[in-house]
Design a protein around this nucleic acid. Structure first.
Length: 594
RNA sequence: GGAGCCGGGGUGUAGUGGUCAAACAUGGAACCCUGUCAAGGUUCAGAGCGCGGGUUCGAAUCCCGUCGGCUCCGCCA
């Protein structure tokens, strides 16, 4: 036996009991004849006292112990003298007086401090992840993650959902993200793909009659990484039969509202969740995943400046462009250098330029310091200020560009300014729905229509006719759940009628042969009685990241990869040996020079 | 594929052309110390500044290239 209690367990009521503890040396305070060791495991810290007069052998062990040694000790629990109790520790009212002790395993000086977090290069944390994971921050996050997944499982179980596993080795489909491929040994030259999501499989489960399915599913996408994107990540994959969009939204909203209240009781949220159409979100925020914790909405000035003599405004109106801006409060006093930085930021986001006007001196047009004051009349400036609701000490930032570019630039500026000004309340969970996404969008490069969500997404009933006449305006029964400026999940009601599916394939330029080769199993399945169905896939990593107030998804994953998709701990990926390659019928064409 | 930031004892930083064969803190070693909880005190050891070129009388410091980490754009149905 190694322990009778954990290091987070003992309290005053245990005083007088004999205890056996095992754990890591968190801190050691050596007073010579008296040594204190804080023994740590994932349950907490317990102070152990080693007294050279009462237990010289145990004391000798303690004097040899160092940080992160694994120790086992036996001793008596006792209430600490009142003046030496530690209110900061749950176990702070007691201590264990060691009678015997043993070093189960010594430890080298660790490259990371376990007791003191932060500061070091993240590469070091990733290389020694098993040490990093000992720290409170990662422990807290992984425990929260466990609780989130547990809550989801319990909730869905209560709602009659079945958790069903789907294969990791599946058929590659060409659309969407780049697949991770796995070579087949048995079939030379052929490959499995790892699922980008179990999309088709869950739809086939609906055909199979498992009308309420979910899975905590690992997904794989071979694309470049971001703070909120890893090559493998986890989704709550969920699908329901005999439902419309409202049924899915209602259930998921209830799940995550209850989850938020249960696990994050100190955070506020708005119920019912706000709903925005895609068009509305783009118009008001320039983003399909706006952070609703603050305002600073985009203002459309196109009408205000439609008749302006200022060439930039006039041309915009003539070319079907938009003039839009945001009002940033409190930065009217920005120096020329600071303003230039903001302009530079806008250019990085794709702006050709950025107009600005400082209301540091107030809203009288004559007192406004701006980049375009000489180009417009006082009346025009006054109209712009009025339309944007300008107040003293504001900075107005304005772009004139095609709608997509204006949206991208103002979204970037809105987020950057909100971050600088600390406008987002950390104690708010701004859940919301974005609905009515376009069904397809035109791919300029390839000269064809692409599915915005995926090729099984149903169009809105009333927009069905647009699939022929004006596909770009055809809306879909597709929806995203958003949270604090992140896409927390997305889903749709699927097409379950063969004719509509064929119509969409035709629109996407997928020939019957191609459709048969790629989706034949789906099309065939749908001919055997497919129920109306739809679903959603919330991203577990992102949601936990936001709940934990962490800046990256890596902080809520046990063993994440770097931006180059490398695991610094195991050094994956690594070359395969010749024997393995031969078995897999693979020859490496471009070997790096080593 | 592109842009930006970072890279120095075990760890985190100061140092932005000579005063630096590199300072401070923490960690490490040794000793002192019976109530600490970031314990305290004394002493000692520990890096030539990611790597490779270049500029200069002189380079952690400037320039070029390269490698690694991060952030962002492209990409992510």
């Amino acid at each position: 036996m190694y322990r009778t209690h954990t290091c987070g367990q003992l309290r005053v009521e245990h005083a007088g009991q004999e205890t056996l503890l095992s754990g890591w040396v968190h801190r050691r305070r050596d007073h010579g004849p008296l040594i204190f060791i804080d023994l740590r495991d994932r349950y907490g810290l317990t102070q152990v006292v080693f007294d050279s007069t009462n237990a010289p052998e145990a004391h000798a062990v303690a004097s040899q112990a160092r940080s992160e040694f694994v120790l086992q000790l036996r001793g008596l629990v006792r209430t600490r003298p009142p003046e030496s109790q530690n209110a900061n520790l749950p176990t702070g009212e007691i201590e264990v007086v060691a009678s015997s002790a043993e070093v189960l395993n010594p430890a080298k000086t660790p490259p990371l401090y376990i007791a003191k977090e932060g500061g070091e290069d993240e590469a070091l944390r990733l290389k020694y992840r098993y040490l990093d994971l000992r720290r409170e921050r990662m422990q807290k996050n992984l425990i929260l993650r466990h609780k989130v997944v547990k809550f989801i499982r319990d909730f869905l179980d209560d709602e009659s959902f079945l958790e069903i596993e789907t294969p990791i080795l599946i058929k590659s489909t060409p659309e969407g993200a780049r697949d991770y491929l796995v070579p087949s040994r048995v079939h030379p030259g052929e490959f499995y793909a790892l699922p980008q999501s179990p999309q088709q499989l869950k739809q086939l489960l609906m055909v199979a009659g498992y009308d309420r399915y979910f899975q905590i599913a690992r997904c794989f996408r071979d694309e470049d990484l971001r703070a909120d994107r890893q090559p493998e990540f986890t989704q709550l994959d969920l699908e329901m039969s005999f439902v419309d969009q409202e049924d899915v939204l209602t259930l998921i909203e209830r799940l995550f509202t209850e989850l938020s209240r249960e696990l994050m009781p100190h955070k506020r949220l708005t119920t019912p969740w706000p709903r925005l159409t895609y068009a509305e979100a783009m118009q008001r925020y320039g983003s399909d995943k706006p952070d609703l914790r603050y305002g600073m909405e985009l203002v459309d000035l196109s009408a205000t400046v439609a008749t302006s003599q200022f060439a930039l405004f006039g041309e915009a109106a003539a070319n079907g462009q938009q003039v839009k801006g945001i009002r940033v409060p409190g930065i009217g006093g920005y120096s020329r250098k600071q303003v230039d930085e903001v302009v530079e930021l806008a250019k990085q986001a794709g702006a050709r330029g950025l107009l600005w006007a400082s209301l540091q001196q107030g809203t009288d047009p004559a007192s406004v310091r701006s980049s375009f004051g000489k180009q417009v009349s006082n009346d025009e400036m006054a109209a712009i200020i009025a339309t944007m609701g300008g107040k003293i000490d504001d900075m107005l930032l304005i772009v004139a560009d095609k709608p997509s570019a204006a949206a991208a630039v103002l979204d970037k500026l809105r987020r950057e300014m909100a971050a600088r000004l600390g406008m987002a309340d950390q104690n708010v969970l701004a859940w919301a729905w974005v609905t009515d996404f376009p069904l397809v969008e035109f791919n300029e490069e390839e000269g064809r229509w692409d599915a915005v969500h995926h090729p099984f997404t149903a169009p809105l009933d009333e927009d069905l006719v647009l699939m022929d006449s004006d596909p770009g305006r055809c809306r879909a029964k597709a929806y995203d759940m958003i949270l604090n400026g992140y896409e927390a999940g997305g889903g749709s009601i699927r097409i379950f009628q063969r004719e509509v599916q064929q119509k969409l394939f035709d629109l996407l330029g997928i020939s019957r042969e191609t459709a048969q080769a790629q989706f034949g199993h789906m099309l065939e399945a749908f001919e055997y009685g497919a129920p109306p169905h739809g679903g959603i896939a919330p991203g577990i990593d992102r949601i936990v990241m936001i709940l934990a107030e962490e800046p990256t998804i890596r902080e809520v994953m046990a063993f994440p990869k770097t931006q180059q998709a490398v695991d610094l701990m195991t050094n994956a990926p690594s070359p395969a040996d010749e024997r393995q390659l031969r078995d897999l019928h693979i020859r490496v064409a471009d070997k790096p020079n080593t």
